[in-house]
Amino acid sequence: MSVDAVGLEERAAVLATRSIKKQSKIVGLRLAIACMDLTTLEGKDTPQRVRQLCRKAVTPDIDDPDLPSVAAVCVYPTLVREAKDALAGTQVKVASVATAFPSGLAPAHVKLQEAKEAVAAGADEIDMVIDRGAFLAGRYREVANEIAAIKDATRPALLKVILETGELGTYDNVRRAAWLAMEAGADFIKTSTGKIHPAATLPVALAMLEAARDFEQCGGRRVGVKVAGGIRTAKQALQYLVVVKETMGDEYLSPATFRIGASALLNDVLMQLTKERSGVYQSEDYFTKD
C-alpha cells in the first residue's frame, strides 16, 4: 500500500491543531513523561552525567513527587552498566543503542557482538539501527535478516528498530521499512537516531503508526512506535500524543506501545506542568539541566 505524502502531511497538520488545555494538558504531559526514553547520546557523556540522568528519570521533579518516572534511560553500550546500577530497584528500564549507532555501518558480526554485550551489561531494551545503505539499495532481505539476528541474540530484551526516516527519502520507504522491521521481529519501530536532520516529524510518526495498525489488523503482533529526535517542547509531545490517540486509540497511549526519545524535552514538560500548577510562566533557570 502506498502513502500519499501531501495527504499524510495534511492529516498530521490538522491533528497538530488540536487544542489541549487545562486538565487535558496536565494528564497529557504526565503521560508524555511516562512514555519518555530519557536519552543521552553524546561523545562527551560521563558516568557522572548518566547517574544524574537516572536520578531525574526516576524522580523527574523533586517538588512534585506524584509525577511518574520515565519509561527508560537510553545510553551508549559502554554506559549501560552505570545506568543499570543507578536504576537498580526502580521500574525505569535501561535502553542501549546498538549495531554501530548511528550509521549502522560496521561488519555484521561486530554489530551482533555489540548488541549482545549491551544486553549482558544489563540493557533491558536495545535500540538498533538498520543498515540504510542496504535498504536503499533494495537489499531488503539482508536488512530483515540482520534485524532477526539481533532479535534472536538479545532476547528477552525489547528490540526497537531505528529506521532513520530522515535518510529514507519518501514516506513509501518509511512504510516499507516499518513493515519489514515488524515482520523481522521488531517490538518497536523507531523514527530516528537524532543524529540526522530531519529526525522525527508528525507525518513520519503518522505513517509508522498507520503501518503498525495495519500490521496488527493483518494478523501480526501489536508493535510499538517510538518517536525520537528533535522533540524538545511540551507542545510537540502533546501533538505526538494526539496523533497516537486518534490513529491507534487510547489503549496505545502507554509506554508498552509508545515512547518518546528525548533529552531536553523533560525540562520543558516540567516547566509547563509547574506553570499549570502555579499559574505563572516559568524560567529555565529553575530547572536543572543535567
Binding site: R18, S19, I20, K21, K22, Q23, S24, K25, V27, G28, L31, Q217, L241, K245, G249, D250, E251, L253, S254
Partner: peptide, 18 residues
C-alpha cells in the same frame, strides 16, 4: 471487538473543552 477505539479500563486521555 477488533477495532474498538477505547479499551475497557485503559487510562483515557480526554481533550478538555476548548
Amino acid at each position: 471487538a477488533r477495532i474498538t477505539v477505547t479499551a475497557p479500563g485503559a487510562a483515557v486521555w480526554q481533550y478538555a473543552p476548548a
